[in-house]
Design a protein around this nucleic acid. Structure first.
Length: 536
DNA sequence: CAACGGTTGTTCTC
DNA sequence: GAGAACAACCGTTG
């Protein structure tokens, strides 16, 4: 007695709540009395090509463990399968007699290409494919269509568009226990090669060392995501939610001054729409801040970068990226390395880079500080290099947001006031005058007096000796003189802007395509859910 | 073409 | 703690 099955393919969207694809598969399983088999593929492409650091591997494994647990509660499990989708699915769809395959849409270039291939393979095997929008508030194509096919390139434009579109779709219900006929057989639920692998084996496969693991400050998974949402976005915490203004939160507090829901949004442990409607609930309780600085505003920033990223070829590169200003960045691997390894000699910068490597999360303004330092502010290295380091180390590294924000900070796109330069000495002092943050992450500097904690090279030798840390010996001298170099760089930016302008006059940009995707190739096929919309 | 606004600069003065 | 000078960018709007 072989029953057929319906498969939900988890990639991002690693949750049970507000998961339209999973719910659809669940419904079909119950209606057709076939089994529901949720899968997650450990794609070797990610192991090889994606820069996933040890902390993010741990977060992913924790998330998969949590997901497996939740799926078992409804009578199924997570099948974790090692192999590329192209190799696995043809076999799997036949072996499991799959009637339908569902997944959540993903706009990243690799994902678009991959999903097109799998859809083709499935159709050849007579397997129905249904895809769903769940990683963003709105269908991104719908936002662009609302703008008459032009990609919105300012936040205000995006805000206007989504306000015309009304609230996003409400979260869908979570699947309850499957009916008896659709539950997995006990054999399928036993320990098997499809179990969530342990971290050791994953790190070994990825060529990573256990030693790079930092303390686990943010546990992966939907359960923790929803707990954190309850803690942060609740009536009990309403004054925090109502008054929240991003620019006024501290980049260098010991405990995070923001919600740290970002890693959960990145993996889809938390649905952005669940976040959205929870915020609306709290907003009913009183006067609240507004976008772009409010918490809702943060969700819209995410939507903004997703919209532009999904409709801009080469969005994660400078060349061939029409929203990105072409700038003659230096290529100095030693400077890049010093920055990435927290050896710039500026304690504020090095403390942030240490927190990033250790814990996998840093405050948004801390990201600004180190990104400005690496690019237009001090080291004049390409934003692409910084983006790669963030991609490896951030738990919440999300393709469109990472590229978009790096272009922002380097004044390559979206933001143009390149003469506003963060000081690696002054900026942190505003919110942490005693340098508690530096003392925590750079313990060898912890005995420095407040006066010198942000600029230890200015301390007299006697003070350095008393603090047990000689500059140039126990802690590096500043890699550049910020006061001098930031003006030189500002001038270079001015010239780069002028040169870029001339370039644009020679080759005026062609009108932007409204229904492109982020890959180099034109889309072979539009998402089926969008066909009707685009015909209008 | 000019005015305006732009999530989140710094430093000096009052 | 607020306001101005610093130097002066862009895209959007009218």
């Amino acid at each position: 007695m072989t029953r057929g099955s319906v498969v939900h393919w988890f990639r991002k969207g690693l949750r049970v709540h507000d998961n339209a694809g999973l719910l659809d598969a669940w419904n079909m399983a119950n209606d057709a009395k076939i089994t529901l088999k949720p899968v997650f593929l450990l794609d070797p492409w990610f192991v090889k090509n994606a820069k996933v650091g040890t902390n993010r591997w741990r977060f992913l494994i924790q998330t998969l463990e949590d997901l497996d647990k939740s799926l078992r509660k409804i009578g199924t499990r997570l099948f974790v399968i090692k192999g590329s989708p192209e190799e696995i699915f043809p076999k799997l769809l036949k072996k499991w007699d799959v009637k339908r395959l569902t997944w959540e849409q993903d706009i990243e270039p690799y994902a678009v290409e991959r999903d097109n291939k799998i859809e083709k393979i499935a159709k050849q095997l007579n397997v129905e494919v249904l895809t769903f929008c769940g990683h963003t508030l709105y269908e991104l194509d719908a936002i662009v269509a609302k703008n008459k096919g032009d990609v919105p390139l300012t936040y205000q434009k995006l805000q206007g568009l989504v306000s015309k579109m009304g609230h996003p779709a409400k979260p869908v219900e979570s699947p309850a226990k499957l009916s008896k006929e659709s539950r997995l057989d006990s054999g399928d639920l036993e320990k098997s090669k499809y179990d969530v692998p342990d971290l050791d084996s994953i790190l070994k496969t990825a060529g990573k060392s256990q030693e790079d693991l930092g303390p686990c400050k943010f546990h992966g998974g939907e359960t923790e995501a929803l707990r954190r949402l309850d803690e942060k976005i609740s009536a009990e915490n309403k004054s925090y939610v109502l008054k929240f203004e991003k620019p006024n939160t501290s980049p260098n507090s010991i405990e995070p001054s923001t919600t740290v829901l970002s890693p959960y949004l990145k993996f889809g442990c938390l649905s952005p729409r669940t976040f959205y409607y929870r915020l609306l609930d709290v907003y009913k309780l009183g006067k609240h801040s507004e976008p772009p600085v409010s918490l809702m505003g943060q969700l819209l920033w995410r939507e903004f970068f997703y919209t532009v990223g999904s409709h801009t070829p080469n969005f994660d590169k400078m060349k061939g990226n029409k929203v990105c200003r072409q700038i003659d960045w230096d290529c100095h691997p030693e400077k890049l390395k010093a920055w990435a390894e927290a050896r710039t000699g500026y304690p504020y910068i090095d403390a942030i880079m240490t927190q990033l490597r250790l814990e996998g999360w840093i405050h948004h303004l801390a990201r600004h500080s180190v990104a400005c330092f690496l690019t237009r502010g001090d080291l004049y290295q390409s934003w692409e290099k910084g983006m790669e380091v963030f991609e490896e180390l951030l738990l919440d590294a999300d393709w469109a947001l990472n590229a978009g924000n790096w272009m922002w900070l380097s004044a390559s796109a979206f933001f143009h006031q390149y003469y506003r330069v963060y000081s690696p000495v002054a900026f942190g002092k505003k919110t942490d005058p005693n340098g508690e943050y530096i003392r925590k992450y750079l313990p060898h500097l912890s005995k420095y007096p407040d006066k010198y904690i942000y600029q230890p090279w200015e301390a007299p030798l006697a003070t350095q000796k008393a603090a047990g840390c000689i500059i140039g010996q126990d802690y590096p001298r500043p890699i550049v003189d910020h006061n001098v170099i930031h003006k030189v760089n500002m001038d270079r930016m001015k010239k780069a802007y002028a040169a870029d302008k001339i370039q644009h006059e020679k080759n005026p940009p062609t009108k932007r395509s409204g229904i492109g995707n982020s890959g180099k190739e034109p889309p072979k096929k539009k998402q089926k859910t969008m066909d009707s919309f685009l015909k209008k």
